[in-house]
Design a binder for these strands. Structure first.
Lengths: 189, 189
DNA sequence: CATCATCTATTCCGCCCGGAATAGTACGCC
DNA sequence: GGCGTACTATTCCGGGCGGAATAGATGATG
């Protein structure tokens, strides 16, 4: 049973709701703002769909054509596809894998800059993160007003929690750098 | 001035400490456990070095050979390289970019599973995360005992803070799912 | 009513990553 | 002293990703 990528999971989940052609999947995912959660580009999606078909996770159920437009190949998820979907989701939920975010790499080399510079740059970062948090809060208010259950936007709550944690860590680190409580090994200001 | 990847930043930072051939960089990075912070493979490193040379961030300073072994091309960082390094680090510190981690994607599709399954899977996740935190704590004790300054392992402290935040969020979400405080939109158990 | 932008639907291409292959050398071991 | 294993140093290649290109249809605009 092949292991799906994040885009694979969301794409296959969309197909699990009903038969569709790739462009329709693309439109639906855009309408649902899934491009904020996974990297979504037409090229990647079409390639993912090709792989699904090759792996027997989906099957062609027809080719439509309207006028002189390009043909639309409609796909349907198979039982094997549903299994792969559930397995991949379970795997991703249960196992924490290192995805090598770039910030730790950058802070690991921050000693190439002066303490003053680092304080300023981290200040910029925390400001932009706090702004993102405000944006999320506004979005969540709108969602709550429309009576959508929290469980449907759990990922947004998760993302918010992670951003708050990062902002808090940055605040305390910035203050330790500012007071000199954290001796700086880099060049002097 | 080209934008560096995380591997690019650590590799160039290593070259900033002194002239070296790529394999030496690789060995040094492995000895320093940089492979826990950035994705490190010989193929990627050699390609990164090629690009550095093409972009004028480094320059060949000689070709050595011992016996019949392959030639070793020694590189030196240029002033332009030092600039690119400082700029890239600054950029990565100051700007928070969405790196599309896979967990939010998975939790966004978790409604394909039952609440009971999700609780079990998230339980596994939190257990493995708490274990990683304990591992980090042991490592940090050893580091402190050797008198290494906190600033040199800031990235470890950051990673630890993020893991703690995720574990805490998972604990509270699991308990809300368990008590039924969080209505589940997926299939019944 | 001509034209320009936008939408529909898909393909293509180049780049990058990372695992595997290569090929010679040193070293341990019975 | 021969044999296997691990190290040194680099290259190669397949696959995936994502931005750009394509090409006809539809709608807007003066």
């Amino acid at each position: 049973m092949p292991r799906l990528t994040p885009l694979g999971v969301t794409a296959l989940a969309v197909l699990a709701e009903g038969d569709m052609h790739p462009y329709e999947m693309y439109q639906l995912m855009l309408a649902r703002k899934e491009d904020r959660v996974v990297k979504l580009s037409p090229g990647s999606l079409y390639r993912a769909v090709e792989r699904f078909a090759a792996d027997g996770l989906i099957a062609e159920v027809g080719v439509e054509r309207e006028g002189n437009r390009p043909e639309r190949t409609v796909y349907s998820i198979t039982e094997r596809g549903r299994e792969a979907l559930r397995e991949s989701i379970a795997e991703m939920l249960a196992r924490h894998v290192n995805e090598f975010p770039e910030f730790p790499a950058a802070i690991g080399e921050a000693h190439n800059l002066t303490a003053g510079e680092v304080v300023r740059l981290l200040g910029e970062r925390v400001a932009s993160i706090r702004e993102t948090i405000r944006f999320i809060d506004t979005a969540l208010e709108g969602i709550a007003a429309r009576g959508v259950a929290t469980a449907h936007v759990l990922n947004v709550h998760y993302t918010r929690a992670m951003l708050v944690a990062e902002a808090d860590w940055l605040d305390s680190t910035i203050s330790e750098l500012g007071t000199g409580a954290l001796a700086w090994p880099g060049p002097a200001d």
